[in-house]
Amino acid sequence: MDNKVYIVHGSAIVQQGLSEVLLKNFKCTIQCYYDFKSLSESDDNCASKSIIFVEDKIANSTEFLQFIDQSHEVKSFSIVNDCAGNLPVNNDYTLSLYNSPDEIYEGIKHAFNTQGLADEESEGLSNRELDVLKLVALGYANKEIAEKLFISTHTVMSHRKNITEKLGIKSISGLTVYAIINNYIDTTNLDIKDLI
């Protein structure tokens, strides 16, 4: 699954610079617009999980605030020009034009993780998903996993669905192989052949 990112900013230089930092660090596809009108008129459906970076003056506009209000799964960052002073009120995160690439990376990473989107290194499995993955790899059934982790079977199933989606691995044996090669489970006292 590709992460969708939108940049809505009047400056081509900002669009370019931010795209570069994003592409260097994250798996994502980026769509740039100069104003909010072009984004809202495009065929792009950014209702599902995506992140929007907007110029601060756009971020404060009524249309945009309305849009964010209606799209629950969209996270927005406003890009502020510190010299101008007007801090936006309704956005999830703020980036400054004067942030270093490292600061931008850290800020974005934070948002990506809370959003559940994949970070390059970790494949984006949450700690809970990792717990589920380990137990799946060890051969436990959904019901047993639910009991061990004190969650419902339904939740286990939804974690499993997310794991498969994030990793691109569908079979139990395949997930076991993934867990072994990443040392998520200790196989010293186990016969790998039986496990897979």
């Binding site: 691109g168 569908k170 044996s173 395949g174 192989v177 993934y178 090669i181």
Partner: peptide
């Protein structure tokens, strides 16, 4: 589809993870 899934996983494990 079970057999198909495993083939798909084999591909993914090699291309993406090892």
């Amino acid at each position: 589809s079970n057999v198909d899934d495993k083939l798909n996983d084999l591909k993914n494990l090699i291309v993406k993870y090892i």
